[in-house]
Simulated scan of single mutants.
Amino acid sequence: MPLKDVKVLDLSRLLPGPYCTMILADFGAEVIKVEEPEVGDYIRHYEPKRDENSAIYHSLNRNKKSICLDLKDSEDHRCFLKLAEGADVIVESFRPGVMKRLGLDYDVLKKINPRLIYCSITGYGQTGPYAEKPGHDINYMSYAGLLDLMGERGRKPIVPAAQIADIGGGAMPAVIGILLALLNRSKSGKGQMVDIAMLDGVISWLPLLLPQHYAGTEVIRGESLLNGGYACYQVYETSDQRYLSVGALESKFWQAFCNKIGKPEVIARQGAPKEEQEDLIKEVQAVIKNKTLEQWMEMFSDGEACVSPVLKIDELERNAQIAERRMLKNLPGDSNSKFKEISSPIKLSNTPAAPIRRAPTLGEHTEEIMKSLGVSYHK
């Protein structure tokens, strides 16, 4: 496994940090969740439950170990320092200042372990006037300007169903930052701080929007090419109240789409001005409304027009592409369970992700890990 000899101490909770460390664990890192006694990761207590823990907790914490330490307790504090001496990576998601008050910030830990890579995932980063502000996914998208651009023209912004800032702006940059720091350490022998701000991460998701703004083009919700303003990149309702998506950006795909729906006369209007696009969308919608989703997908099955069904979440398992890529599967030896695990999206030919082990119970590995440190632990 690529990360077989990497030991990660994960003090994070909820979504961004655990998602980051899940990816590291999938590829062989020994990830030890350091959890508060009795309470643990808050996401354990969410509904719906899979057993005594939430279904979401299981999804995010596979392939990890769990120990319970009260970092405000002197004995547990010493145990954590002992763990940190032999760790390669620490991931935490507290607001700036919390780890310093605990006497466990990067400046302290790098003295006992100069090779340590210390990754902090926060909403706004370690610096700036917002550094200590609380926030969640919706807040970071708001400050980044992304939320304002999501939704239909003339209506309020739409909250996305997936956590863009938490995962795309926090967890994934954290993984990349940690791997870059590990690569650098292999050359320099020194660790470093990885400062990940979810607001920064969301702003980095705007490479097609901000350049338009700086070039003098006004970017408005529901009016741009890629946010619902054009007929060739749009969602249409079918006769059975289902939806299909059209991503016919290239002229050849748009031409194929228009011919298939029997509207060759609108091919030349693909790039019509924004003020004409609304009428074009209505014309196409009137045609799409005449057939069911199944009928349309059958019609488009033999051509290239970038047309897809808008699947419901309970249809994913039956989709041939998702099944072929084995993105949803049971735990090994648990083929009868109704619960499916989301597989790693990173497909390596020689060193694939590890088979999924169940998420740990709270403090399950405390005694084992303390014993490996030569610490007598009797709490």
Rank of each mutant, 00 (worst) to 15 (best):
E237G: 07
T238Q: 08
T238C: 13
S239P: 01
S239I: 03
S245W: 02
S245R: 04
S245L: 06
V246A: 04
V246W: 03
V246I: 07
G247A: 13
A248S: 02
A248D: 02
L249P: 08
L249I: 14
L249M: 10
S251N: 05
K252W: 09
F253M: 06
F253L: 05
W254Y: 14
W254S: 14
W254R: 12
W254L: 14
Q255T: 14
Q255C: 10
A256N: 15
A256G: 15
A256S: 15
A256M: 14
N259V: 04
K260E: 15
G262T: 06
K263T: 00
K263H: 02
K263Q: 02
P264K: 06
P264A: 06
E265G: 08
E265C: 09
V266D: 11
V266E: 12
R269I: 11
Q270C: 10
Q270W: 11
G271K: 14
A272R: 08
A272Q: 10
P273D: 12
E275Y: 07
E275N: 09
E275P: 05
E278H: 06
E278D: 08
L280Y: 12
K282A: 15
K282V: 14
E283G: 09
V284G: 01
V284M: 00
Q285A: 12
A286Y: 01
I288E: 02
K289M: 09
T292N: 07
T292G: 07
E294M: 00
M297F: 05
E298T: 11
F300W: 11
F300S: 12
S301A: 06
S301M: 00
S301Q: 06
D302A: 06
G303C: 13
E304H: 04
A305E: 12
A305D: 12
A305N: 12
C306P: 13
V307E: 03
S308D: 13
S308I: 09
P309G: 10
P309A: 14
V310T: 15
V310E: 14
V310I: 15
L311N: 13
K312N: 10
K312D: 12
K312H: 10
I313E: 13
D314F: 04
D314Y: 03
E315S: 13
E315H: 12
E317C: 11
N319M: 11
A320C: 00
A320E: 13
Q321I: 09
E324C: 05
E324P: 05
R326E: 15
R326V: 11
M327L: 09
M327C: 03
M327D: 06
K329R: 02
N330V: 05
L331A: 03
L331G: 03
G333T: 00
D334Q: 02
D334N: 02
S335K: 01
S335F: 01
N336W: 06
K338P: 14
K338D: 15
K338C: 13
E341N: 05
E341T: 03
P345D: 01
I346P: 02
L348T: 07
L348N: 09
L348E: 11
S349A: 03
N350T: 00
N350R: 01
